[in-house]
Amino acid sequence: MGMPNRKYADGEVVMGRWPGSVLYYEVQVTSYDDASHLYTVKYKDGTELALKESDIRLQS
């Protein structure tokens, strides 16, 4: 078993793309699913969504 190939840690605050949009919002990573390679993130309004790594970026 190798290390999970994840870029962002639980609790890390990053920018997540809103689905169907080009806009990124501040989100907190809450979990990562090794099987689906999706991150569960929480937006400031409390919305929780699963995002692909390509829809997440570090805060500038």
Results as ranks from 00 to 15, higher is better:
36 S>E: 10
19 P>A: 06
54 S>N: 11
37 H>T: 10
42 K>L: 12
7 K>I: 11
5 N>T: 14
52 K>G: 10
15 M>C: 15
6 R>I: 04
30 T>Q: 13
9 A>L: 11
53 E>L: 04
60 S>A: 13
41 V>Q: 00
59 Q>C: 15
35 A>L: 12
6 R>M: 03
30 T>D: 06
27 V>P: 00
35 A>D: 12
50 A>H: 14
40 T>V: 10
41 V>T: 03
4 P>N: 12
60 S>M: 12
39 Y>H: 02
50 A>S: 13
32 Y>G: 00
49 L>C: 10
20 G>M: 06
17 R>N: 04
13 V>K: 11
8 Y>A: 03
19 P>D: 05
25 Y>I: 11
47 T>L: 08
22 V>A: 13
25 Y>P: 01
41 V>M: 01
41 V>K: 00
48 E>M: 12
41 V>A: 05
60 S>Q: 12
24 Y>S: 02
29 V>W: 01
46 G>R: 03
12 E>M: 15
1 M>T: 15
2 G>D: 15
28 Q>N: 05
53 E>G: 05
21 S>L: 05
40 T>K: 10
30 T>A: 09
6 R>Y: 03
50 A>N: 13
44 K>H: 12
4 P>T: 08
53 E>T: 04
3 M>I: 13
31 S>F: 08
41 V>W: 00
12 E>R: 04
39 Y>S: 01
16 G>T: 08
29 V>L: 02
20 G>V: 02
17 R>M: 07
6 R>S: 03
1 M>Q: 15
26 E>C: 11
58 L>K: 15
42 K>W: 06
25 Y>F: 12
10 D>F: 04
33 D>H: 05
4 P>E: 14
13 V>M: 13
59 Q>K: 15
53 E>M: 04
38 L>H: 08
21 S>F: 04
53 E>W: 04
47 T>C: 12
25 Y>D: 06
38 L>I: 12
41 V>E: 03
43 Y>G: 09
57 R>N: 07
33 D>V: 02
39 Y>M: 02
36 S>K: 12
10 D>K: 05
12 E>F: 04
9 A>R: 09
46 G>P: 00
40 T>N: 09
4 P>C: 12
15 M>F: 12
12 E>D: 12
46 G>I: 03
52 K>Y: 12
38 L>N: 07
27 V>Y: 06
55 D>I: 01
10 D>C: 05
27 V>E: 00
1 M>A: 15
2 G>H: 07
45 D>I: 03
42 K>Y: 07
43 Y>P: 01
51 L>C: 04
16 G>R: 01
15 M>S: 06
18 W>M: 09
30 T>R: 08
53 E>F: 04
14 V>P: 01
58 L>M: 12
55 D>C: 06
28 Q>L: 12
5 N>D: 15
22 V>Q: 14
6 R>T: 03
44 K>R: 10
15 M>G: 03
29 V>I: 14
46 G>H: 04
5 N>P: 14
40 T>M: 12
25 Y>R: 10
23 L>Q: 12
47 T>N: 05
19 P>Q: 05
23 L>R: 12
49 L>E: 04
56 I>G: 01
18 W>H: 07
35 A>V: 14
35 A>F: 12
35 A>S: 12
29 V>D: 00
43 Y>H: 09
33 D>I: 03
10 D>T: 09
56 I>S: 00
6 R>A: 04
13 V>G: 03
21 S>N: 06
31 S>Q: 08
14 V>G: 01
58 L>W: 10
38 L>C: 09
2 G>Y: 03
58 L>G: 14
11 G>S: 04
27 V>H: 00
14 V>H: 02
25 Y>A: 08
8 Y>F: 13
39 Y>P: 01
51 L>W: 03
39 Y>L: 02
3 M>E: 15
52 K>Q: 12
54 S>R: 07
50 A>I: 14
21 S>G: 10
28 Q>G: 02
45 D>W: 09
38 L>W: 08
36 S>Q: 10
47 T>P: 05
33 D>K: 01
32 Y>L: 01
6 R>Q: 09
17 R>E: 01
38 L>R: 09
21 S>K: 07
34 D>F: 07
48 E>Q: 11
52 K>D: 10
18 W>T: 07
23 L>C: 15
55 D>G: 02
48 E>P: 04
22 V>L: 15
52 K>N: 10
34 D>E: 14
59 Q>A: 14
20 G>S: 05
54 S>A: 12
59 Q>G: 13
10 D>Q: 06
28 Q>D: 02
50 A>T: 14
10 D>Y: 05
48 E>I: 14
34 D>N: 08
18 W>Y: 10
4 P>R: 03
45 D>R: 02
18 W>Q: 07
1 M>H: 15
44 K>D: 07
31 S>M: 08
35 A>T: 12
47 T>F: 08
1 M>D: 15
9 A>S: 10
1 M>V: 15
8 Y>Q: 01
47 T>E: 05
24 Y>N: 01
31 S>L: 04
19 P>E: 05
18 W>C: 11
59 Q>S: 14
8 Y>H: 05
36 S>R: 10
1 M>E: 15
43 Y>Q: 06
38 L>Q: 09
42 K>S: 08
5 N>A: 15
